[in-house]
């Protein structure tokens, strides 16, 4: 075994499981469904990762503010999965609450592009935009794990498509 290869390999694992990811996995944000599907502006999505049986049920609560923008008031979720999927759900929750639908679409696109880098260099702008979620860059080197990181984002997109926003006051 060549030592340089070995060093690179260890680095891959550390890179996959960055501290921020391990922390979120151990102490996930948004876990535990809140509100009720009967409430106005609430929609839910259930997604599974068929290769490993991971699942997530995600609930989003949206409202149209006075300026006409649709905003995410709250996101909560429940599910089982690996540390990557749990941490990704947690980081995403923190990132999207309070954002408009357009902003969330941009974030989702940025996250997808991060997953497509295959371990290559990340666009600094994407990194900046994603904040903590940029820590998932290492996942892109492991094609089998990309779906784990994307599961929450897929559930969010699906829930947002289903949601009819309640009309409300200007947010924040």
């Amino acid at each position: 075994m060549t030592s340089s290869k070995w060093v690179k390999h260890m680095a891959d694992l550390q890179d996959l499981y960055r501290q921020i990811i391990l922390d979120h996995a151990r102490n996930p944000q948004g876990r535990g469904l809140i509100g009720s599907l009967q409430d106005g502006g609430v929609a839910q999505s259930h997604q599974v990762n068929p290769t490993c049986g991971d699942e997530i049920t995600l609930r989003a609560h949206v409202m149209r503010d006075r300026s006409g923008d649709v905003r995410i008031l709250d996101v909560s979720w429940e599910g089982q999965g690996c540390s990557i999927s749990q941490a990704s759900s947690s980081v995403m929750t923190e990132l999207v609450i309070g954002q408009t639908l357009t902003q969330v679409e941009d974030l989702a696109a940025a996250f997808r592009s991060l997953m497509d880098t295959r371990g290559g260099t990340v666009d600094p702008q994407v990194e900046e935009q994603l904040g903590d979620a940029a820590a998932f860059a290492g996942v892109s080197k492991f094609p089998a794990r990309v779906k784990c990181a994307l599961l929450a984002w897929i559930a969010l997109r699906d829930a947002l498509l289903k949601a009819t926003p309640v009309e409300g006051e200007r947010h924040g």
Binding site: L13, Y17, C52, S83, I84, F142, C148
Partner: peptide, 13 residues
């Protein structure tokens, strides 16, 4: 306390 995917990843390493 550790999901099978994570177990597999550390073993693979």
């Amino acid at each position: 306390g550790v999901h099978a995917h994570d177990v597999g990843q550390v073993l693979d390493d």
